[in-house]
Write a protein that binds this DNA or RNA. Structure first.
Lengths: 326, 326
DNA sequence: TTGTAAGCGTTATCAC
DNA sequence: GTGATAACGCTTACAA
């Protein structure tokens, strides 16, 4: 930068002002500096910049590779979320640091802030990290979470209305006249538990309805298929099934088919996420759609508010039932 | 750091030495400094560190959100790759900067290096970026690519043996006695073109075989399903289909089913990637498996070699045919 | 509108 | 083994 300043016959601060679009610089000077900078292929050293400035302009995004990878979850859901966040951050000229998945402890997250690597965090999917997030909030770290939204939590979260999702599925089952409902999903995940709660809330109003629960630890296709099949061998078949994901719903279709049962003739089935194949699957899946498209932008917006000293409220995104064949 | 030095009665350089595990520091001093640092919750400022040091210890990873998101590609393939890279980088204490997808130009990539934000790049999926990558290599940027491996390219790439993948599918089709083959895929993607080449190489040795090609631009389920269906209405059905992905293969099954055609009775079908649902799908998909598990570590290893001044060779990972029902 | 001087928190160099 | 000093490349405060 010193070089550029010399070549353009100005001082370093002036070059800095030009590069930061300061309004207090003469138009002619600005042009000259920019030209010299361009001709010399100058690029600002972002480390020096960050060292000097208060903000880091970097956000650490934390994925739950643990659950998603080991379980080889097939839903491209988190990936879409990541794409949205990436876009929203780049619009605001924020760097996206993908947080190493081994940072499980509160302290290692705090270190990332105090080392001035990132300004804050975006957690995609709260998974089973509830307690850690509470501690992190207590320690004052700036972050937002995509996942189940619980106003009682001490941090800002954004998520679709999982409880409503569960209710929508329940309402559908009632309309179809189903009596023996089955919920399939790992309720250790806050967002999934809320769907279950929504479903049970509807069931509670209909005494003739019973709700059972098949707990699946791994969220991928194969384990769901196998557990569903095993369950069906030990239990009378339900006439309505609510699955925590469309991928799971597809696995469930396969398992029921083994017993000669087809949706919607023998049972109603509702998935979650409205992944692209859901519409074209045979049978076409009834499912709950989340507004992923907005999610990235909203998460980033809220985190920026926090970094600016604000206290944004958690917010719940709309969710809707998409009725197809099942 | 000055504070820690004062509190521990040493100088700043000594604190620095302790923190960097320098061997030339007295054991007692080291203990004392570490204790003081811990007690005061000290964390090193990584920006100052990076400003001073030659290396940045940050790798920019570039995903093709463009193809994958707009096309809403359902294969969790790239996601697995990303998880592997993330893991391999964190083992080496390298930060992972997820590159904004709008960096399409060579210059914007070069800027990331000259701004000292990242030391180098890992491109996941070369997609349609072939020419850009060539330019980037010519400009001397350090990077490696996951994708189709072509020794003629001026950069280091790692990928599975796509050509062999195509040959394995071809051999299978020959064994099944199929004569009218169809390849479904966007050959603008280098890795997909190589699969097509492998398939055609086998066909060339069998004069009775014809190979047709259905070009699909978007790689997601829905467009493949629709294009396949449209094609089947205009053409006599093939007796063997090689799809660029398992997701596509599933779409193809659905399209053929519309015409009352089932695999394997009416046609042979081979997918790619061996995604988890492939095994449990009805019919169970025959597919080609890639060794994604190793990919992340190998990519990182090669990039580190480049950053250390080496010239690692491109390498091809094994690929194997998994014969199931189709 | 522009320039001067100081300082951000580290590490490299060299001396002791 | 350890310390003094300078330097990395930028921005802020203040002066002109």
């Amino acid at each position: 930068m010193g070089d550029i300043a010399r070549l353009a016959n100005v001082s370093k601060p002036t070059v800095s002002r030009v590069l930061n679009n300061s309004p207090l610089v003469n138009e002619a000077t600005r042009e000259r500096v920019l030209r010299v900078a361009r001709e010399n292929g100058y690029a600002i050293n972002r480390n020096a910049q960050k060292l000097r400035q208060a903000r880091n302009d970097t956000v650490a995004v934390v994925l739950d590779f643990g659950s998603h990878r080991a379980g080889r979850i097939a839903d491209p859901f988190i990936f879409e979320l990541l794409a949205g966040v990436s876009e929203a951050l780049s619009v605001r000229n924020q760097d996206l640091l993908l947080s190493p998945s081994n940072l499980s402890e509160v302290q290692s997250h705090l270190d990332l802030i105090s080392s001035r690597v990132a300004d804050g965090f975006i957690f995609l999917g709260q998974g089973v990290r509830g307690p850690m997030l509470r501690d992190l909030a207590r320690a004052g770290a700036p972050f937002v979470v995509w996942g189940g939204v619980d106003p009682a939590e001490p941090y800002c979260s954004v998520g679709s209305d999982n409880r409503l999702g569960g209710q929508l599925a329940g309402d559908l089952f009632v309309k179809r006249g189903a009596k023996r409902w089955l919920f399939v999903g790992n309720v250790a995940h806050a967002e999934i538990r809320m769907r279950f709660d929504g479903l049970r809330a509807v069931a509670a109003k209909h005494p003739e309805v019973t709700v059972e629960h098949l707990e699946v630890e791994h969220m991928a296709y194969a384990p769901v298929y196998q557990q569903m099949l095993a369950w069906l061998r030990d239990n009378p078949p339900p006439d309505a099934v609510f699955a925590f994901s469309d991928t799971a719903a597809i696995a469930i279709v396969a398992a029921f088919r083994e017993l000669g049962l087809e949706a919607p003739a023998d049972y109603s089935l509702c998935g979650y996420n409205n992944i692209p194949p859901a519409a074209d699957f045979t049978p076409a899946l009834t499912t709950i759609e989340q507004e992923t498209h907005l999610a990235g932008a909203i998460l980033v917006e809220k985190l920026m508010q926090i970094l600016d000293g604000g206290k944004p409220k958690s917010s719940v995104l709309p969710t809707r039932l998409i009725v197809r064949q099942t």
